Simulated assay, not measured.
Amino acid sequence: MPDLLLDINLQQLPDEYLAGTWRVSDRVLNQTNPNSALALATNFVLQPGFLQLHAPGHTAQGDWTVQRDELLNRPYLQLQLSEEETRALITRMRRSPDGEFSSLNLYFQSGMEMQLTRP
């Protein structure tokens, strides 16, 4: 991990900053079903109009979009998989100055918290 990471203003977060392959580096399940694909995920691949989720012994495909609430313009990641549909508030995004390293914090409707890192 680089020494310097910059916080991204979430109200101005470009959707393309989310594209790429993300590794799940930390998660807190809370009330989430521990056997769900999201709870077991190790990697997310986000490409325009395409989502692929990797979990041990399981791969799921679907779609993702970014939605924003009207009041504060906070970004939500809407995930649509064949087994489930959910959305997660993007609570923090950080990037290295060269854009090669990023971290993304998500808070799901179920209460699950997840930190993703890239590369």
Rank of each mutant, 00 (worst) to 15 (best):
Arg27Val: 01
Asp63Gln: 13
Ala41Val: 03
Leu53Phe: 01
Arg87Phe: 12
Arg74Phe: 15
Glu84Asp: 07
Gln67Met: 07
Leu89Ile: 07
Thr86Gly: 13
Gln61Arg: 14
Asn33Gly: 02
Glu100Pro: 03
Glu100Arg: 13
Arg92Ala: 12
Ser82His: 15
Glu70Cys: 03
Leu71Phe: 14
Ser82Lys: 07
Ala19Gln: 14
His54Asn: 02
Ser82Trp: 09
Asp26Pro: 03
Leu46Met: 13
Leu72Arg: 12
Arg74Leu: 15
Arg74Lys: 11
Ala60Val: 02
Ala41His: 04
Leu46His: 11
Asp63Leu: 08
Asp26Asn: 10
Arg92His: 13
Ser82Arg: 07
Pro75Phe: 10
Gln78Arg: 12
Asp26Arg: 11
Glu84Met: 09
Arg92Phe: 08
Gly20Trp: 02
Thr32Gln: 15
Leu29Arg: 11
Gln47His: 07
Asn105Ala: 13
Leu81Gln: 08
Arg68Val: 08
Ala60Ser: 13
Asn43Ile: 00
Ala37Pro: 15
Asn43Thr: 01
Asp69Arg: 08
Asp63Thr: 10
Gly57Tyr: 15
Gly62Asn: 05
Leu77His: 10
Leu89Gln: 10
Pro97Lys: 02
Gly99His: 12
Ile90Glu: 09
Ser25Pro: 13
Glu70Val: 00
Gln78Ser: 06
Leu53Ala: 00
Thr86Val: 09
Pro34Gln: 05
Ala19His: 11
Arg95Phe: 07
Thr42Cys: 11
Ser82Asp: 14
Leu18Met: 03
Ala41Gly: 05
Ser25Gly: 11
Gly20Pro: 06
Glu85Val: 06
Arg94Glu: 14
